[in-house]
Amino acid sequence: MWQFLKTWYHRLASPKWFYHTSGRWLPYLAAVTILLLVSGAIWGLGFAPEDARQGNSYRIIYIHVPVSVLALVGYYLMAVAGAIALIWKIKLADMVMVSAAPLGAVLTFLALLTGSIWGKPTWGTYWEWDARITSMLVLLFLYLGVLALSRAFTSRDTAYKACAILSLVGTVNIPIIYKSVDWWYTLHQPATIKLTGGSTIHPAMFKPLLVMIIGFYCFYALVLILNTRAEILRREQRSAWVRELI
């Protein structure tokens, strides 16, 4: 058992092994992703019942919610990869972390954008200082900070270590930020604005949402792997196995 774990550990840590194995699985993952996202979107757009209160504008939920979930999950993934890279000095982990930062920032931006488009027909404004939107905005700032920091260093080794520390500090802070923003919002909540409770969603509306969430998880994994592969190639261009690829 121990031996098995050990070989896996060494394999996983090897960029070469990762590059070859992920290359074999990528087409399947891409096919599943496209299938899930396209069918989920068609289901959500055309076949899910209309919401009684919000009408058809609620259909944005099928993008907004999965994107928001992955934006947050992505930050934790980035921090965990950073911690692994810091503690065990695994090269692959820091490549994953570097690849996760821009992807997460784009997803957070999309979450804000779709939320704001959704807000117009629902609340009558594009922007509302609501607890969730504000938390998302702070998350975007956290991502932008990590991105800016990673660009600032000339030494790649220092850059990933610095980003790992910053994202770990951010991870500790995220629950506190969310709680404080939540609390701040209850202080200032105008009585006229009511959020749609996600808890009482109808099953016929929830099923396509589930498909989309799984689809977006696949999408995230797919793009993260693609990014990591590109990063591996860039860093290992001098090694023998990369030369053999050409």
Partner: peptide, 17 residues
């Protein structure tokens, strides 16, 4: 400027409280 960028998001809870 970079320092401000990475630190300000972490200041949110303090400012709110």
């Amino acid at each position: 400027v970079l320092l401000s960028l990475i630190v300000i998001p972490l200041y949110f809870p303090v400012l709110i409280f």
